[in-house]
Design a protein around this nucleic acid. Structure first.
Length: 153
DNA sequence: GCCAACGTTGGC
DNA sequence: GCCAACGTTGGC
């Protein structure tokens, strides 16, 4: 099993929005970065665990856990001309963008702030603590995942 | 709103 | 293939 961190902007789609979604499940649409796409398309497998991270907001950090419930399939929003994620270069026969579906697992009792992640000596290898990190989906090691879960319930 | 860091585009 | 220009991300 693999472990991941996925960023979301809570003013757009928060962990509470995920929890209150139908079946507590959402399609992770709108990723338009090749590296992040490749993780979803090639490496994210059923039941992989996902740390949900809130970015570009007042309280930045990891807020809870989700899991993969459907593996890679084409991101339909790229084909929808009315979608903000529309991409003219993506077609039905040759889709450019892929997504997975994730399901809410739990919300932590409180956020694990970016500040505390950065200060934690056990998490110096976590991608999100590194300067200039912009990738919206990053792999997390089993060790990092377990450690982060041990910080919160 | 600022700005550093990074990704993408396109001319050459 | 190089690289400058531009666009985006995201913390602060």
């Amino acid at each position: 099993m693999n472990y991941w961190l996925m960023k979301t902007e809570p003013q757009h789609f928060s962990i509470d929005d995920l929890k209150s979604s139908k079946n507590a499940t959402t399609s992770w649409e709108g990723v338009r970065n090749y590296q992040a796409r490749n993780f979803m398309r090639d490496e994210m497998k059923l039941d992989d665990k996902v740390l949900i991270y809130h970015s570009t907001c007042k309280d930045v950090g990891i807020v809870g856990i989700a899991k993969v419930v459907k593996e890679s399939h084409p991101d339909q929003s790229a084909l929808d001309i009315k979608s903000p994620y529309f991409d003219i270069k993506s077609t039905v026969s040759n889709p450019r963008w892929f997504m997975v579906q994730v399901m809410f697992v739990k919300k932590f009792d409180r956020i694990i702030s970016l500040k505390s992640l950065k200060e934690d000596k056990n998490l110096t290898t976590l991608h999100v603590t590194k300067k200039g990190n912009r990738l919206s989906i990053t792999p997390v090691t089993y060790k990092e995942y377990n450690y982060i879960c041990s910080l919160r319930v």
